[in-house]
């Protein structure tokens, strides 16, 4: 009885668990990968997970401010991707690779 309800009635918890799974996938990507661009992609995954939880809370609270916060998160994410990719281009010009271990040579 309980199991069929879990699968058939979609509630706030389902969206929150989906958000958690996606966030932890992005965290695994940031921790395990060594390509700087793939790490940036994983950060985008984490931000998307946070957006899902914002919108789910906003819907189930009948509050529109969750969607406004998602706008701000999206803007910050786009800016962060632009800066990160510019840094990656700079690293690539110097070392011909975007592996994260070259970022320890940043100075001057």
């Amino acid at each position: 009885m309980v199991n069929t309800n879990v699968f058939l009635e979609i509630g706030l918890n389902h969206y929150l668990v989906l958000s958690t799974v996606l966030f932890c996938l992005g965290m695994i990507g940031v921790l395990l990968r060594k390509n700087a661009i793939v790490m940036l992609m994983s950060i985008e995954l984490m931000l998307n997970a946070v957006n899902i939880s914002f919108i789910a809370f906003g819907k189930y609270n009948s509050n529109i401010d969750g969607q406004i916060m998602v706008f701000f998160v999206m803007t910050i994410a786009a800016a962060e991707a632009a800066v990160g990719l510019a840094l990656a281009v700079s690293i690539f010009k110097r070392f011909k690779e975007v592996n994260i271990r070259f970022f320890e040579h940043l100075k001057g």
């Binding site: 800016a79 632009a82 800066v83 700079s90 010009k93 040579h105």
Partner: peptide, 23 residues
Amino acid sequence: LGVLLLVIAVGVVALSRSKGGTH
């Protein structure tokens, strides 16, 4: 956010135009 985007745009252009990147 508009001000932030302007700062980011100018900063990214300046960063990618600098010769030789970070070195």
